[in-house]
């Protein structure tokens, strides 16, 4: 399996998934169901998580398909330019959804976050739909309507260029000598922040530090989420600046896989019942311990495969 396969597997998730999450949120508001609202927030988080490989593997698909007869590079770039904004708004929506879940678990209401999620998810839906349509037009002429052809679409795209393109963001990284080392430093500092909190929270679930209840360590989770956000931004900047280093890199594929498990474990420890009810001096149930072990192992995997990008893979 290559990263291009992963892109084909996941490229409908942001559009269809966001639509499902919005539908769940609307139904929860109509039915005044707190449980359904929680589920919609969880779906927003999972969709944001899956959008990460959906976006990054697109670069691998681009390298595979560009320069082939009948494939327009202009349309591929338009798809990429739309995707980077859809990705950013999707991550913002997922971030607010995570914060609302964390606050609700602690008994708060997070009204501001809910409002932000409603607005951001609507924007994300529009951006994802446009991205999906532009992506489809690259290789599916059957969706061209009203006698459109590739030349007409290229001309239309040229008359209405985006304010900031993915290429410009890439050049921002590669043209400034200070940016890569600064972001690399921040990437490692944020990694320490994430892993520190992950270790404390999940070692507690595995039976260490029993003097603390899980809700006591649960309040630290936003620090891990902040680290995650920093690494998402810095990591995406590296990838946009030097896509060739990641697009066909086996180690990056494994890193993405570990990141998905790590993200899901963060959702579990943030929002689910199992860990929350582990009080001071108590032992966590076996299934909760299993998630704790998976969380630590997956973050170790993220770090290992990240470090091995140049050795197992072809980066740098």
């Amino acid at each position: 399996m290559t990263l291009s396969h992963v892109h084909l597997l996941l490229n409908h998730v942001p559009t269809v998934g966001t639509a499902i999450a919005i539908a769940l949120l609307v139904i929860s508001l109509i039915r005044r169901s707190d449980e359904l609202k929680r589920v919609s927030l969880e779906v927003f988080f999972v969709i944001a998580l899956l959008t990460l490989p959906a976006y990054t593997t697109g670069l691998a698909a681009q390298i595979q398909i560009q320069n082939r007869p009948g494939v327009s590079d202009v349309m591929i770039e338009a798809h990429e330019d739309a995707a980077i904004w859809a990705f950013a708004f999707m991550q913002l929506t997922g971030g607010f959804a995570w914060f609302a879940l964390w606050k609700r678990r602690r008994g708060g209401l997070a009204r501001g976050s809910m409002l932000a999620i409603v607005l951001l998810s609507a924007l994300t839906m529009m951006m994802s739909a446009r991205t999906a349509n532009l992506g489809g037009e690259i290789r599916h002429p059957e969706i061209l309507v009203g006698g459109e052809d590739v030349a007409a679409i290229e001309a239309a795209l040229a008359t209405n260029p985006p304010m900031i393109t993915a290429n410009q963001i890439g050049l921002l990284v590669t043209d400034r000598t200070w940016l890569w080392p600064a972001f690399e430093s921040l990437h490692f500092i944020a990694m320490c922040l994430i892993f520190g909190v992950v270790l404390i929270a999940n070692l507690r679930l595995l039976g260490l530090f029993k003097v603390w209840s899980f809700p006591a360590v649960h309040r630290l989770l936003p620090w891990a989420a902040l680290g995650f956000a920093i690494n998402m931004i810095t990591g995406m900047m590296f990838m946009t600046g030097s896509p060739g280093m990641y697009a066909d890199n086996t180690s990056f594929l494994y890193k993405l896989g570990c990141l998905m498990i790590a993200g899901l474990s963060l959702l579990y420890t943030t929002a689910f019942e199992g860990p929350w009810w582990v009080g001071a001096g108590q032992d966590a149930p076996r299934r909760v311990k299993l998630v704790g072990a998976a969380a630590i192992a997956s973050w170790l995997g993220v770090m290992y495969f990240g470090r091995m990008l140049p050795f197992i893979g072809n980066a740098f």
Binding site: F99, K103, R106, G108, A110, T177, W178, P181, A182, S185, L186, I189, A190, R219, P222, W223, L226, I230
Partner: peptide
């Protein structure tokens, strides 16, 4: 030398901003 100074400044400023955001979020914990 100039490069190291810029990198250090960017990292320090970002760390301070992130710490401030973290402290602000922590206020929602109780």
């Amino acid at each position: 030398m100039q490069l190291a100074a810029i990198v250090t400044a960017v990292v320090l400023v970002t760390v301070v901003i992130v710490a401030a955001i973290g402290v602000a979020i922590d206020r929602h914990a109780d």
